[in-house]
C-alpha cells in the first residue's frame, strides 16, 4: 500500500490544494479506503494539515476510512429507493450483519456503504454487492441474499 500511494502522489508532483479531492478519490479507488497513513502522506504532499483533510473527507459520503470487507454492500439511498423503503433495508442489514454504515465487520467479511444513487431507479430498492446489483428487493429476498453471502 505504501508504494501505491507514493506512486500515485508522484503523478501529482506539482499539485496544490485544489487537487485534494481527485487525489483522495484515486487513493480510495486503488487502496479501497483512506488510511491514516494515506491522509498523512497527502497532507505532507500538499502541505495541508491532516485535520483539514479528514474534515473534508468526512464531509463526503464517498470516502471511507476502513478497508472494504470481502463483500462490499452498497445500499442505494436515492429518491426512488428512499420511497421504496431503503431505510428499512439499511436497518435490516445493520442489524443482521452487526455493522454500521461506513464500517466493516470485525472479521472483515462485510462492509456497508450508503450511496446517494446508483442509477437503477426503475428497479428500486437496489443494493449492490461487490458491483453486482440486487434489484426490486423485498425483505425476504434481502434475507436470502444475506444468508447466501454468509454461507459462502
Amino acid at each position: 500500500m505504501d508504494g501505491t500511494i507514493n506512486l500515485l502522489l508522484e503523478k501529482y508532483s506539482h499539485s496544490r490544494r485544489d487537487s485534494l479531492i481527485p487525489i483522495l478519490q484515486e487513493i480510495q479507488e486503488e487502496v479501497g479506503y483512506l488510511s491514516e497513513e494515506a491522509i498523512v502522506k497527502v497532507g505532507n504532499h500538499l502541505n495541508i494539515p491532516t485535520s483539514k483533510i479528514y474534515g473534508l473527507a468526512t464531509f463526503y459520503n464517498q470516502f471511507r476510512f476502513e478497508p472494504k470487507g470481502k463483500y462490499h454492500i452498497q445500499v442505494c439511498h436515492g429518491t426512488a429507493c428512499h420511497l421504496f423503503g431503503a431505510i428499512r433495508i439499511i436497518d435490516i442489514i445493520e442489524r443482521k450483519l452487526k455493522v454500521k454504515a461506513g464500517q466493516t465487520t470485525r472479521n472483515g467479511k462485510f462492509s456497508l456503504e450508503i450511496v446517494p444513487c446508483i442509477g437503477a431507479c426503475a428497479q428500486a430498492p437496489v443494493i449492490s454487492v461487490n458491483g453486482e446489483y440486487h434489484s426490486n428487493l423485498t425483505e425476504d429476498h434481502l434475507g436470502q441474499v444475506l444468508i447466501d453471502l454468509n454461507g459462502e
Binding site: P49, S51, K52, Y54, T58, F59
Partner: peptide, 9 residues
Amino acid sequence: VSTLDFLNR
C-alpha cells in the same frame, strides 16, 4: 496549529 476542523456534515 490547525488541530481542529468541522467533521461530517
